[in-house]
Simulated assay, not measured.
Amino acid sequence: MTNEAEIRALIENWATAVHTGNLDGVLADHSDGIVMFDVPPPHEGVRGIDAYRETWPPFFVWQAEGATFTILELDVTASDDVAFAWALLRCGTPADPPGHHLRLTIGLRKDQGRWVVTHEHHSFAAVDDDTAENNPGEIHAVESER
């Protein structure tokens, strides 16, 4: 199996574990030093497998209320020891607007012959009518204040 195929299977298994609320499956193949930047706070991200673990139970509760978590598109780029992948996912409820997709970026490294996730970044594009699409100056102003 190629590195790309191994990573694709790893990510697809992770997404299935997320969708089914399988915490052990979500944590599998993640580095002890995982860094994740998620949609909800903390905005500084979480660092370490214990902090990563703590983010999932509230998500599972929300998801059990009718939300979905499904990969729509997945692209993997890999060398022999490092890789990254990006994906678009349907992560939401039936009430969410069409095309409102979760953007996922994953960084991986090969550790003792197996791929492990070292970084995850989850985000949604802004959908408010006053965001960059309709008012690019507003986003620039917010970023300038940081």
Rank of each mutant, 00 (worst) to 15 (best):
N13C: 06
W86D: 08
V127R: 13
I34V: 14
A17N: 09
E73D: 13
G113C: 14
H19F: 07
S123T: 10
T55Q: 13
T16R: 14
E73L: 02
H140Y: 08
F60S: 06
D38V: 00
V82G: 00
P42V: 05
T77D: 12
E138Q: 12
A64Y: 03
G48M: 01
N135W: 12
R103N: 03
T118V: 12
V35F: 15
D80R: 10
E73T: 08
D129L: 14
L10N: 05
Y52N: 06
T118I: 11
D96E: 11
A15V: 14
H119C: 06
A141Y: 09
L23M: 05
V26Y: 01
V61L: 12
V142M: 13
I11M: 10
G21T: 05
W86C: 05
P40T: 03
N134G: 15
L88M: 05
S123F: 05
H43A: 13
A51R: 05
R53M: 01
T70A: 12
T131N: 15
N13F: 04
P57Q: 13
A78L: 05
D129T: 13
D50R: 04
W115H: 07
R114I: 11
E6K: 08
P136A: 12
V117C: 06
K110Y: 08
T131Y: 14
G33C: 01
G25I: 03
A51M: 05
V61G: 06
W14Q: 09
D128K: 07
E4H: 05
H101L: 01
R53Q: 06
D80H: 11
V142D: 06
E4Q: 11
L74S: 09
D111G: 00
K110A: 09
I11V: 13
L72N: 12
E54Q: 14
E120L: 13
D129A: 14
W86I: 09
A126K: 02
P58N: 14
F124R: 01
R90V: 08
A141I: 01
V61D: 15
T105H: 14
V142F: 15
R53T: 02
P41L: 10
D24L: 09
E4T: 12
A5M: 11
D24P: 08
T20L: 13
D130Y: 03
P41Q: 13
H43L: 13
L74F: 14
T93G: 06
L102S: 02
D111I: 09
L27T: 07
P58H: 13
W14G: 04
G21H: 02
L23R: 08
V26G: 08
E138M: 12
P136N: 11
L74R: 10
H119D: 10
V76P: 03
T131P: 01
W62I: 02
H100A: 02
I7N: 01
K110V: 08
V116I: 15
P42H: 09
H30M: 03
P58W: 12
H119A: 15
M1Y: 04
H101E: 12
R146E: 13
P136D: 07
T68L: 07
G45Y: 04
V39Q: 02
D75L: 11
A51F: 01
P41K: 10
T93M: 14
E73V: 07
P58D: 15
L104R: 03
D129Y: 11
R146N: 07
H121E: 13
G25K: 03
D81P: 00
P40Y: 05
E73C: 01
F69N: 06
D96A: 13
P58I: 12
F37P: 00
E6L: 07
V116F: 08
R8N: 04
G21W: 04
L104I: 07
